[in-house]
C-alpha cells in the first residue's frame, strides 16, 4: 500500500539574481513499511525534499500526499497536527532541549499533543529502553554522549507513533562506532514497528539496508 506520493514536486531558491531549481518535477511513490534512502551531493536537495514532505518547507508546485493527506494544501493548524501525528523527524543535529532530561525530551511531543503526563512518560521510558538508554533517563543532553543524544532524538521522533519517519543525516555528526549503533537501532526499530522510513545520508553503508535508494541529481531522482 502506498504511503507517500509525490507528483511534479518543484522547489526553487532565489540566490541573488539566480534562480536555483533544487527539485524539478519530482515524482515518487513510497510503499508503507518500506525504507527509502536518498543520497546525493551537498546542496542536491535531499534535505529540502525531506523538509517539504515533513511540512517544514513549502514546494513551489506539485502535490504531496502522505497517508491520503494533501501536505501541500495543509492550513496552519493542520500542519501542526500533521507534524505531530503523521511524521517523526530525526535531524543531523539532535536538537534536544537543554535543561530537560532524556525522558522529558523524548516525551515532550506526546505531552504537547495532549497525552496525559504518566502515559507520555511511560511511552518515552519504553522507547528509551529500546534504544538502550534505560539508565540515562534523568540525564540532560550535556551529560550524554553524541550517540546517546541521537538515540534520544530517535525516541522522540517515534513517541507519537508516526507512520512516516524522516531521518536527515542522523549519523552525520557521529563517530564510526556510534554511527553503527544508531544505524542498527534505526533500522531495527523501523522494521519492528513497520514504519516507513525516508533516510537522507552520505553514508554508502546505509544503501544496502534500504528497500530502495535514490540519488538526487540536477533536481531529479535517479534510482540506484
Amino acid at each position: 500500500m502506498e504511503l507517500l506520493r509525490l507528483e511534479g514536486l518543484t522547489k526553487r531558491y532565489i540566490s541573488g539574481t539566480e534562480v536555483l531549481t533544487i527539485l524539478d518535477k519530482v515524482d515518487l511513490s513510497v510503499p508503507a513499511g518500506s525504507v527509502t534512502i536518498f543520497t546525493g551531493e551537498s546542496g542536491s536537495g535531499k534535505s529540502t525534499l525531506l523538509n517539504i514532505i515533513g511540512a517544514l518547507d513549502n514546494p513551489d508546485s506539485g502535490e504531496i500526499r502522505v497517508d491520503g493527506i494533501r501536505v501541500d494544501q495543509l492550513a496552519e493548524g493542520e500542519t501542526d497536527r500533521y507534524r505531530s501525528e503523521t511524521v517523526g523527524f530525526v535531524f543531523q543535529f539532535h536538537y534536544l532541549l537543554e535543561g530537560f532530561s532524556a525522558l522529558e525530551n523524548a516525551m515532550l511531543p506526546a505531552y504537547m499533543r495532549g497525552l496525559p503526563l504518566a502515559e507520555a512518560r511511560e511511552r518515552a521510558r519504553e522507547l528509551l529502553s529500546r534504544v538502550g538508554l534505560e539508565k540515562r533517563l534523568d540525564h540532560t543532553p550535556a551529560m550524554l554522549s553524541g550517540g546517546e543524544r541521537q538515540r534520544v532524538a530517535l525516541a522522540r521522533a517515534l513517541i507519537n507513533d508516526p507512520k512516516l519517519l524522516l531521518a536527515d543525516e542522523p549519523t552525520g555528526n557521529l563517530d564510526e562506532g556510534n554511527t553503527l549503533r544508531v544505524k542498527e537501532l534505526l533500522f531495527s526499530l523501523v522494521r519492528d514497528t513497520g514504519k516507513t522510513l525516508l533516510l537522507v545520508t552520505h553514508e554508502s553503508a546505509f544503501i544496502p539496508e534500504g528497500d530502495r535508494a535514490y540519488r538526487l541529481h540536477a533536481g531529479g531522482l535517479e534510482r540506484l
Binding site: 497536527r81 536538537y95 504537547m112 522522540r156
Partner: peptide
Amino acid sequence: QEQIAILKATGSSGFQ
C-alpha cells in the same frame, strides 16, 4: 530559537 523550532517541528502549535 532552536528549541522553539524543534518543538514546532515535532508538532507543537504556535499557540502552545
